[in-house]
């Protein structure tokens, strides 16, 4: 049986070029990830800054033996944003589509389907597989039971599960960072760069609930799906995706590698994750078919 792969998903937040370099250097040097996504997914306005950094990081990660996937925008709107999606989709690297804009030009070439594309059933997965989908990262809402059913019906596709990080829950054409700071999206002053894990959103009663990241809304809780090797194999999961946060992602990667290899138990993995500096409590309801905010086992 093949070893379950470990993917470092695309960074969703607005980090500076230096921070990006430092972060991915660490990932290249000594992380357990075998596949790393690069590229801006959330906001096209951030691209002029980060686009300059990606080429050197691609080389560095590939030299370190990592498979690099180029991620594309989830909500391309302007002509420039659409052009960037189409250009990346014509690239020789493996590419992740996060919206169907890139699908026509990518059809026939292998691609990854990101969790922001709605693949809720076997039929949708088969449809995309026939067009070249090699890996499909399931939408975060799906239960393990649904994921297993899709994986069983589409054995030629690598099924990936979003296993760590604040859950990407919603997108908007409105920028909540700008709105919160009384700014207009077009002159946002890039205020989202102040919040490396997004800005916390609480209820009126002070209960942590969500997080805003530009046009994206995430969960406040940090999703942690830590299956035993047997559970992952039973659901035919081939990859787990960890979503980058300001915490030590190299250690997070090690924790997941250890649980997937059967070296530690899921309970031990959760305990070790809780020792990290996380932006929210651990949750795992979606995997169990419950509300996404349901706390992970203590």
């Amino acid at each position: 049986m093949n070893r379950i792969g470990l993917t470092l998903g695309p960074l969703l937040f607005n980090w500076s070029a230096e921070r990006l370099r430092g972060f991915y250097e660490g990932v290249a040097r000594h992380s357990a990830f075998d596949r790393v996504h690069l590229g801006e997914v959330v906001c096209g306005k951030r691209m002029p800054f980060s686009d300059r950094v990606w080429p050197e990081l691609i080389g560095m990660l590939e030299d370190a033996g990592k498979e690099v996937v180029l991620s594309t925008l989830a909500l391309p709107a302007t002509p420039r944003e659409r052009r960037s999606v189409l250009e990346i989709c014509r690239d020789g690297h493996l590419v992740e589509i996060n919206d169907l804009t890139g699908l026509p030009v990518r059809t026939g070439l292998p691609f990854v389907v990101g969790p922001l594309v709605n693949v809720y059933s076997e039929g949708a997965a088969r449809f995309l597989a026939a067009r070249g989908a090699q890996t499909i990262c399931m939408p975060v809402e799906l239960s393990l039971a649904s994921i297993g059913a899709i994986a069983a019906a589409c054995r030629d596709v690598e099924i990936e599960v979003f296993a760590f990080g604040r859950l990407p829950l919603a997108l908007s054409s409105r920028c909540y960072h700008a709105r919160l700071h009384g700014l207009h999206k077009d002159s946002c002053q890039f205020v989202c760069e102040r919040d490396p894990d997004g800005i916390d959103v609480e209820t009126l009663e002070g209960q942590p609930f969500l997080a805003a990241n530009g046009i994206q809304t995430l969960s406040h809780g940090v999703h942690a799906f830590c299956p035993t090797p047997a559970e992952a194999a039973a659901a035919r999961i081939r990859r787990l995706r960890l979503s980058p946060h300001s915490t030590d992602m190299v250690i997070a990667g090690d924790i997941y590698r250890a649980v997937l290899d059967g070296v530690t138990t899921p309970a031990q993995a959760l305990a070790r994750l809780r020792e990290l500096r996380l932006p929210g409590e651990l949750v795992d309801g979606y995997a169990r078919g419950a509300a996404g905010c349901s706390p992970a086992a203590p």
Partner: peptide, 17 residues
């Protein structure tokens, strides 16, 4: 306000979306 069909806020809180 969210892009419809791409919003899981409701299931995050309630389990139904």
């Amino acid at each position: 306000p969210m892009t419809e069909g791409r919003c899981a806020l409701s299931s995050y809180a309630t389990g139904r979306s």
